[in-house]
Measured scan of single mutants.
Amino acid sequence: EVDTLELTRQVKEKLAKNGICQRIFGEKVLGLSQGSVSDMLSRPKPWSKLTQKGREPFIRMQLWLSDQL
């Protein structure tokens, strides 16, 4: 189980620290539009309420944070 709230907090922190905009992060890392990324980072759904497809971007965020992506 992933703590989506904590994960998105860490992602936002790393984006800010490295000067990466959400649009680029969305396109290059998540394969999503800036609007989708913005929504996901500001209002993450609980892991238990996400479908497999809904969980994929959060898994990619985890990999990106651990420099595996």
Rank of each mutant, 00 (worst) to 15 (best):
L5K: 15
N18R: 14
S42G: 04
P57M: 15
D3C: 04
K12F: 01
L63K: 15
S33T: 12
S42I: 08
D67V: 01
S48F: 06
M61I: 03
G54R: 02
E56T: 05
S36G: 03
Q68G: 08
M61S: 01
L65W: 02
V29E: 01
V29S: 03
L69R: 10
L50Y: 06
R23C: 03
P46C: 03
G19Y: 09
G26I: 04
S36M: 12
K12N: 04
S33C: 12
P46W: 14
K45C: 05
V11I: 07
L50G: 01
G31A: 05
K14N: 05
Q22G: 03
V11G: 08
R43E: 08
S42A: 13
A16S: 13
F58L: 04
L7W: 05
D3I: 01
L41Y: 02
S36K: 15
P46F: 14
S38A: 14
G54S: 10
G35C: 06
Q68N: 11
K17R: 10
L63H: 14
F58T: 00
V2M: 15
F58C: 00
E56C: 00
D3M: 07
E56Q: 11
E27K: 13
L63E: 14
R55D: 00
W64A: 00
Q22M: 11
K14Y: 12
W64C: 00
T8Q: 03
R60H: 02
S66D: 15
Q34P: 15
P44E: 01
A16T: 11
R9A: 12
E13P: 08
W64P: 00
D39A: 11
K28H: 08
E6K: 12
I59L: 13
L41T: 02
W64I: 00
Q52R: 14
K17M: 10
Q62T: 03
G31V: 01
S66I: 12
K17T: 08
R60S: 02
T51S: 11
L30Y: 02
I20G: 02
L30V: 04
Q68I: 08
M40D: 11
N18E: 14
K45E: 07
E56L: 06
C21S: 15
G26M: 07
K14L: 13
M61D: 01
Q34W: 15
K12D: 12
Q68D: 09
N18G: 09
L32G: 05
G19M: 04
S36A: 15
F25T: 02
W64V: 00
L65I: 04
L30C: 05
L15T: 03
C21V: 07
R55L: 02
Q68R: 11
S36D: 15
F58W: 09
S42C: 13
Q62V: 03
P46D: 03
M40I: 13
I59V: 10
L5F: 14
L63D: 15
K28M: 07
P57V: 09
Q62A: 09
L63S: 15
F58M: 02
C21I: 09
L65N: 00
W64L: 00
Q52H: 05
S33F: 13
M61Q: 00
E27N: 09
Q22K: 10
I20R: 02
W47G: 00
S38C: 02
T51G: 08
R60F: 00
G31E: 02
S48N: 11
G19F: 05
F25Q: 00
P46S: 10
L5E: 15
W64T: 00
Q22P: 11
I59E: 14
L41N: 02
E56W: 03
I20V: 06
G54T: 10
K28T: 10
R23Q: 10
M61A: 10
V37G: 06
E1M: 14
R9Y: 04
G26C: 12
T8I: 09
T8W: 06
Q22D: 02
Q34T: 14
L15M: 15
L15R: 11
T4Q: 05
S38Y: 13
S38G: 10
V37M: 05
Q62R: 14
S66W: 10
V11S: 07
R43K: 12
G26H: 01
D3L: 02
W47L: 02
M61W: 03
K17L: 10
N18V: 10
D3F: 08
R60A: 04
E6V: 06
T51M: 08
E13F: 07
G35F: 10
K28G: 07
L65C: 02
Q10G: 15
G35L: 12
W47R: 01
K53S: 14
G26R: 04
F25G: 00
L65E: 00
K17S: 06
L30R: 07
R55W: 01
C21F: 10
S66F: 06
E27Y: 06
S66G: 14
L5I: 14
L50T: 00
N18I: 09
G54W: 10
R23P: 01
S36I: 14
M61L: 06
E1T: 05
S48L: 06
S66Y: 13
R55H: 01
Q68C: 13
D3V: 02
E13G: 06
T51R: 09
V29N: 01
I24G: 03
S36V: 15
R55C: 01
M40W: 14
K28V: 07
S42T: 07
L7N: 14
G54I: 14
L7V: 12
E6M: 06
G31T: 04
L69E: 11
W64E: 00
E13T: 08
E56N: 03
T8S: 09
Q52F: 04
K12P: 05
I20S: 03
I20F: 11
L41A: 05
Q68W: 10
L65T: 00
Q52D: 14
V11Y: 03
I59P: 00
V37E: 02
W47D: 01
M61E: 00
L65Y: 01
N18C: 03
K12C: 05
P44C: 08
T51N: 10
T51A: 09
E13R: 09
S66N: 15
